[in-house]
Amino acid sequence: MRISAKVDYAVRAMAELAAARPGDLVRAEDVAAAQDIPVAFLLTILNDLKSAHLVRGHRGRGGGYSLARPSAEITVADVARAIEGPLARIRDVGLRDLSYTGPATALLDVWMAVRTSLRSVLENVTLADLVDGHLPPAITAMATEYRTKEHHRGRTTPLAGQDD
């Protein structure tokens, strides 16, 4: 599975907004600088997030952006869906509309498991979790398992294309 730069930037931008004091507005330029995101790309992302009712934009001299809901009520999955739609798309077809035959029949169950796995992570991590640096225990356990496996493979970080 691939997480696009747009989704990565969107989650990082939302974390910046979540870290702001309640009621404060954050300028797009400040978010872009803090997270090293191109401003023009960030403005497109913020527009998508506004359309999804995850952020509010405030115009004017003291304008900026703020979360539309408390950070504890916005999940990483909410942000990803606002930017790219369903979490796991298979050929841009809904899983209900897929069917396979012969030796590939069980593949539908694999795709269902992939979607369930993504949901189990992304729907259980909120912006508040990110900002606080305290992820749910199940998520921390998965990350620890990943690090352990990478360590046993002799790598401290995954190599490009070898992120399995």
Rank of each mutant, 00 (worst) to 15 (best):
G60D: 10
V110K: 10
A82M: 02
A138K: 14
T75G: 08
V110E: 08
P137E: 09
A5T: 15
M142Y: 04
A141F: 05
R61E: 11
E84L: 08
T144W: 05
D109I: 09
G62C: 12
W111S: 04
E145H: 12
P70M: 13
G62F: 15
R153C: 09
L46S: 01
R147H: 05
R12H: 04
P38Y: 02
K50T: 05
T156C: 13
G85A: 06
R81V: 14
A77D: 08
V114Y: 05
A33C: 05
T105A: 15
A18S: 10
A106Y: 10
P70I: 09
L118E: 08
Y9F: 14
P70G: 15
V114C: 01
A34H: 02
R89D: 09
T116G: 11
D164W: 15
I83A: 01
V125Q: 02
L54M: 08
I37W: 00
A104L: 15
T140F: 07
R81C: 11
G102R: 14
I83Q: 01
L118K: 09
A128L: 12
T148D: 10
L43K: 04
G154Y: 07
G57V: 02
G60E: 09
R89V: 09
R56L: 06
L127M: 03
L118C: 06
V110Q: 09
R155G: 04
V31A: 00
L130A: 02
H152R: 14
L87E: 03
T126V: 06
T75V: 11
T157G: 06
D8S: 14
V131M: 08
A104W: 13
R12E: 07
S66L: 08
A160N: 10
A15I: 01
I3K: 14
G64A: 10
P38K: 04
H53C: 06
L17Q: 01
D97Q: 11
E16D: 12
H53T: 08
V93I: 14
T140D: 13
V121I: 12
Y146C: 06
M14Q: 00
R56V: 05
R155V: 10
P137L: 08
G62V: 12
L118T: 02
A138F: 07
L118N: 04
R155L: 12
S117G: 12
L46P: 00
Y100E: 09
L87T: 01
A104N: 13
A104M: 15
Y9R: 07
G57A: 10
R21C: 02
D129G: 07
H53Y: 07
D78L: 04
T75M: 06
L43V: 03
S120C: 06
L46N: 01
G161A: 13
Y9K: 04
R89C: 07
R155K: 13
A19C: 11
I45A: 02
P38F: 05
R91M: 06
A128K: 09
T116E: 13
H134C: 04
A13R: 00
P103D: 12
V7F: 02
Y65H: 15
R59L: 15
V26W: 00
